[in-house]
Design a protein around this nucleic acid. Structure first.
Length: 553
RNA sequence: UGUCCUAUAGUAUAAAGGUAGUACAACUGGUUUUGGUCCAGUCUGUCUAGGUUCGAAUCCUGGUAGGACAACCA
């Protein structure tokens, strides 16, 4: 079956290059994060794109840390980024750092000075900004623009030598102060920062700006396709200008639309605020759309890769619905997660005609989606069970097919029971539900001939273990918090985390493994949280099951 | 009063001048020891006005709408 998959615009560009023989058919991409925060699902899109494209066309991908700003970057972030990229399932050809090129970049700058294409400017930041004009008004040259090459050379060397304090001088490209593209109005190339760099330490006190580092780094590595997001479109002219004047490898920049997901924020700056201001418990809080948060929440690498595949690649601004991400993880977990029973909001069910003290071990397959059930486990059954409070009603409405006086349900993997009554406390709250079971209806050899509409999950009171269960909802209540009036944090959902400190789980779950997905039957997919200790099991709900009943009710 | 990018169902994304398709969402129905899964089906779309053409989502022109750009951030 030959499935005609259409190409997105980047695939078309690469195939055209391959056809023309550009770079001898070589494809080398790069994923260039700044190590100033944790990776999020938006980065996953870029990672899948860069690594995926290279894999597709027999090429390679470099992991390059864009570390040109020492005040925001830390080794902790480098480590987390490497871990996340690996976890997503990708291997880089080389681990590189822009800071590896500081000497080379310095030499490039000197070259431009010698060509009279760069100059040292003593103006303040404010003066430089004012001198750039506005989009509709040309800028005016700084008085330092006409310094001699010799003077520029000397001053730049002195900047490097540490002779000047932060902000005293900058190196600027000499291009065109009237350019319609603001980025061409003599952009900054170097600034003075007496700061310790996470890798070069105090070796440098001048650092290149993004625009004077990125394209050159691509050129040094001979990157064939430098893929970035839409906001860099205006930078492309500069990217090309430096490469042209320096006469170095002609890497090309291409731009695609970044990922946005509804009811979430996606920028590192905003995520950092959520962490620093304690709206969440760290970068890996399961409510965060960081890679580490998603991992802790129970998302699998495959589900994220599949999601990135489904959202497509284009140049149009987009806002993807969270439901697509949820679909992807359900699709994956449905095929792999072991089914288990857990009661989150318990009420006691007493089987009045079941012998006191009797217990039996029932059989439950791990996953009905897998041929053969993917193995099975034993489930202890007895006279008193915990069932979900919402599975009993004193009076059943139309189409309610769970438990209510006179109604029957099947207990999953066990017997059919018929509700015979219930007990209440002094306030009228139901404290206990009574039922009778039908011995011939046992799962596996049901000879009762009965058919019931509902099946509910349960846990034997005498055998139940307990666990803390954390339920999550979207972190924001606005569809696009970043585009609402005021601060995005005003739109945080106050009920995004619900902790159930004592849920009842079937005994087998006591041996749950970290990193494995479990389906708590009828309640959703769950995974063990890293907060789990020997005394306290903690489960995160990855995602609920699709629920067509809750919507109608 | 600039330059640049973009415009297809609710949300994304295809159709390279020739049948507007796919996924998610929503809605029906069937199956089901999970109100899950699975299966079948329904709904909804080319921003606008011209032009070129036998034929336009696609090419051209003008409008409109949204977005990016004037950090010693990346």
């Amino acid at each position: 079956m030959s499935e005609e998959r259409s190409l997105h615009f980047l695939e078309e560009i690469i195939e055209a290059d391959l056809k023309k023989g550009t770079h001898d058919g070589r494809v080398l991409t790069r994923f260039p994060p700044e190590p100033n925060g944790y990776l999020h699902i938006g980065h996953a899109k870029s990672i899948c794109l860069n690594f995926g494209l290279a894999q597709q066309y027999g090429g390679k991908t470099n992991l390059r840390f864009d570390d040109t700003n020492p005040v925001t970057e830390e080794t902790e972030y480098v480590e987390s980024i490497k871990k996340d990229v690996k976890w997503l399932g990708f291997d880089w050809a080389q681990e590189l750092y822009t800071s590896d090129y500081f000497d080379q970049l310095y030499a490039f700058a000197v070259t431009l000075i010698k060509k009279d294409l760069a100059y040292v400017d003593d103006s303040t930041a404010e003066e430089i900004a004012a001198g750039k004009g506005t989009p509709t008004v040309p800028g005016t040259p700084s008085v330092y623009r006409s310094r001699s090459i010799e003077e520029n050379l000397q001053l730049f060397e002195e900047m490097k030598a540490g002779k000047y304090p932060d902000g005293a001088k900058v190196l600027r490209a000499k291009i065109d102060l009237a350019a319609p593209n603001m980025h061409l109005r003599d952009p900054l190339m170097y600034r003075i920062k007496h700061a310790t760099h996470h890798r070069t330490g105090d070796a440098w006190c001048i650092y290149p700006m993004y625009d004077f580092a990125h394209g050159q780094s691509d050129a040094i590595e001979k990157i064939t396709h430098s893929i970035c997001t839409l906001e860099f479109i205006p930078h492309r002219a500069l990217y090309d200008w430096f490469i042209e004047k320096l006469e170095i490898f002609p890497a090309k920049q291409y731009e695609f639309a970044r990922l946005n997901i509804d009811y979430a924020v996606m920028s590192k700056r905003k995520l950092l605020q959520l962490v620093n201001e304690k709206f969440v418990n760290g970068w890996d809080d399961p409510r965060m759309l960081t890679i580490s948060g998603l991992r802790r929440r129970g998302y699998t690498p495959a589900s994220i890769r599949n999601f990135c595949d489904k959202i497509g690649v284009a140049k149009r601004e987009n806002l993807i619905e969270m439901s697509l991400l949820e679909f992807c993880i359900r699709e994956d977990l449905n095929k792999t997660a072991w089914r288990r029973m857990a009661v989150l909001d318990p009420i006691k069910l007493v089987i009045t005609n079941y012998p006191d003290g009797q217990e039996e071990l029932l059989h439950g397959e791990n996953n009905p989606e897998v041929e053969g059930g993917d193995g099975s486990r034993s489930i202890p059954f007895s006279k008193e069970l915990w069932i979900e409070r919402e599975d009993f009603k004193e009076e059943a409405e139309k189409k309610y097919f769970r438990l209510a006086p006179g109604l029957s349900v099947r207990l999953k993997n066990a017997y059919i029971v018929t509700c015979t009554g219930f007990k209440t406390d002094d306030f009228g709250n139901v404290t206990e539900v009574h039922c009778e079971y039908i011995p011939e209806s046992k799962s596996g050899n049901d000879t009762s001939g009965l058919h019931v509409k509902g099946t509910i999950h349960w846990v034997s009171v005498a055998h139940a273990k307990t666990a803390e269960v954390r339920l999550y909802d979207r972190l924001f209540q606005a569809e696009d918090p970043s585009n609402e009036d005021g601060d995005f944090k005003e739109y945080i959902n106050p009920n995004s985390l619900q902790v159930l400190s004592k849920a009842y789980i079937e005994p087998d779950l006591a041996t749950a493994e970290l990193g494995r997905g479990y389906q708590f039957i009828r309640k959703g997919y769950f995974t063990l949280d890293t907060d789990t200790t020997a005394e306290n099991l903690v489960f995160n709900r990855t995602v609920t099951l699709k629920d067509n009943w809750a919507k109608k009710a």
